[in-house]
Design a protein around this nucleic acid. Structure first.
Lengths: 188, 188
DNA sequence: GATAACATGAACCGGATCTTCCGGTTCCGG
DNA sequence: CCGGAACCGGAAGATCCGGTTCATGTTATC
């Protein structure tokens, strides 16, 4: 493969990643090409059609995410901390794209499998956090996964988003309800 | 206006309200007509084009919302309670539609004004709740409005949604983090 | 410098939706 | 009950929009 071709392929992937992350999965091929500083034709030279490009990017993203997640899950830290780090890690990833691919009927098998793995790992972390008492216990772990995906699978989600912060706080196990009014207490 | 025409108009509005609420603002005119049990032609007899229908429904929805909000704000209850009741009240309303209309450039003036009023009232409630100490203070009221709109302006949002619950919990002022260890305090 | 690989973007295509239109139907006053 | 005006239906036409192709011009490599 010629050097310029390789460079252009990289440009395309970068631009597409960026656009998918900030604008959602409905960006047109022309926008992507323009953002990469190339013509549409070039884009089609490297990816036979839109689906191929989407799959490539979604799969790459999910693979990266999965490996990060495995690292987090392997550490001996509290599960809650792992969840928070994970959510922070997700910011700026084109997850809305992956979500779209998965929600649609007949997702490409690789993407479906990767998503399954990711969701499974998150669910396990959630369960563990619940056992550790740091995550509210009134939600099935699956529901927690869905919630987090809302926080994370938005075009333009940022790690320190108000929404992300609020959702994480809302997911914390309630700190013991303060003492009754009028009571005198000693905190040990 | 003939009786059947009036009836059909009502059928259309009902069906459209329902579809906009559950499927988002991108429903096709044919789907709406089908849901109303009528032909597309009939739909176009009553509303000159898609925009007219959208505006009508969005404006109706916002008007209802605004009046409910005024009632809530007028009551002497705590502002936090009003906010929660408001959010519950929003479930099943086609607010995603209104949001789309407002987000787009050049929204119809009536819709824009209504939305402005609604947002303003919510922001005032949020501010009041912060003064009362029931709503976390580290977010500008405007941000709170945006957050709540995420909770509420989803196709198919339900009042007892996990997401809605979690967001509301995350918005609560943190129950005192607990005084420093070893301190003795009296709770009045 | 020759050649094959590559880039370009205007033109083409498909399908999805909005909108029109006219034959058929339904209501309503006389 | 009847006539006609208002109304309904849904196929056909217009329009839009993005994906894809391809003939032409350019560039890396040997």
């Amino acid at each position: 493969m010629r050097a310029d071709a390789r460079r252009n392929r990289a440009l395309i992937l970068d631009a597409a990643l960026d656009l998918f992350a900030t604008c959602g999965p409905a960006v047109s091929m022309e926008e992507i090409a323009r953002a990469a500083g190339l013509g549409v034709g070039t884009l089609y030279r490297h990816f036979p059609d839109r689906q191929a490009l989407q799959e490539q990017i979604a799969a790459d993203t999910l693979r990266r995410l999965l490996s990060a997640l495995r690292d987090l899950a392997a550490r001996p830290a509290p599960a809650w901390e792992a969840l928070v780090l994970f959510v922070r890690h997700c910011a700026g990833l084109p997850l809305a794209l992956a979500k779209t691919l998965v929600d649609d009927a007949s997702p490409p098998p690789e993407v479906a499998e990767l998503t399954g793995d990711v969701n499974g790992l998150i669910a396990r972390l959630a369960e563990q956090a619940q056992r550790e008492g740091s995550l509210r216990a009134d939600l099935p772990p699956r529901e927690v996964v869905d919630l987090l995906s809302v926080a994370v699978c938005r075009p333009g989600a940022r790690a320190d988003d108000a929404l992300t912060t609020v959702i994480l706080d809302g997911l914390k196990a309630p700190t013991a309800v303060g003492p009754a009014r009028g009571a005198a207490v000693t905190v040990d």
